[in-house]
């Protein structure tokens, strides 16, 4: 999947994030990603990269993601060539950049890379789901439409873990919550899945929550970020930080 830069507002007939109005108020510049539009940046890129390295909040809800659940799900995923983490609440980066997390012994979450180009997520969407529907119930693998049920935010920067301590009971500092770890917990009273997936040297936490709660969560996080000068950042800044490695 390729992305094409375009000026704001988001192009017509494209899937928008539930935070679209927040983004237009901030004069975001959008880019097209498949059938969806994603915030590329809000202002000058160089300044935004520095902000993201300190403390930034990005809306990645338009990126593809998918989930599978059931007693047969881990075995089925292995048969599809997916590398699985050894234990629940951990994640593993795949060869194509996708991130596969185990939420329990029987539940998988698959997130795309920042370019939305992960072949794993994109190819799994139509083909394998159809084959699952036709397979025997004994296979016990069920598709979870995570792109529709959950929003995806990214909190980046060296001040992220400290900021989280204001709204989350789990200690997310680096020596307690390493790269690849997952915490399923309450974040500003919202149930969330937090995945640590650093952008090269910059700490980064993906936050997945019920899509209907994302406006509240966005506002809460920005409020908590204020004292650390945290600001919204676009995906272009995140890609730049990831490329620094």
């Amino acid at each position: 999947m390729t992305h094409v830069n375009s000026s704001q507002p988001a192009m017509q007939n494209q899937r928008r994030s539930p935070l679209y109005r927040r983004h237009t108020e901030l004069k975001a510049e959008f880019e097209s990603l498949g059938d969806a539009s994603l915030v590329s940046r809000y202002g000058e890129l160089a300044a935004e990269i520095e902000s993201a390295a300190q403390l930034g909040l990005a809306d990645l809800s338009a990126l593809p993601r998918i989930g599978f659940k059931g007693a047969g799900a881990p075995q089925w995923a292995i048969s599809q060539g997916i590398k699985l983490p050894e234990s629940p609440n951990h994640s593993v980066v795949q060869d194509d950049g996708a991130l596969v997390g185990k939420l329990s012994h029987q539940e998988l979450l698959i997130l795309s890379d920042l370019a939305g180009s992960s072949a794993l997520v994109n190819s799994l969407e139509p083909v394998q789901i159809e084959s699952l529907k036709q397979s025997e119930p004994a296979a016990q693998t069920y598709h979870l439409p995570r792109a529709h049920s959950h929003s995806c935010l990214a909190v980046t920067g060296t001040a992220a873990a400290e900021m989280f301590s204001k709204v989350c009971g789990v200690d997310l500092r680096s020596h307690k919550f390493a790269q690849g770890q997952i915490a399923q917990t309450s974040l500003a009273k919202i149930n969330a899945v937090i995945v640590r997936h650093d952008l090269a040297e910059t700490p980064c936490f993906y936050v997945l929550s019920d899509i209907s709660t994302v406006e509240f969560l966005w506002d809460c996080l920005l409020d908590a970020m204020q004292e650390y000068a945290g600001v919204p950042v676009g995906v272009a800044a995140l890609r730049s930080l990831a490329a620094r490695g």
Partner: peptide, 11 residues
């Protein structure tokens, strides 16, 4: 058993 010690309000 899956997620470790958590605040009782999460249960």
């Amino acid at each position: 058993p899956l997620n470790g010690p958590r605040n009782i309000s999460e249960f």
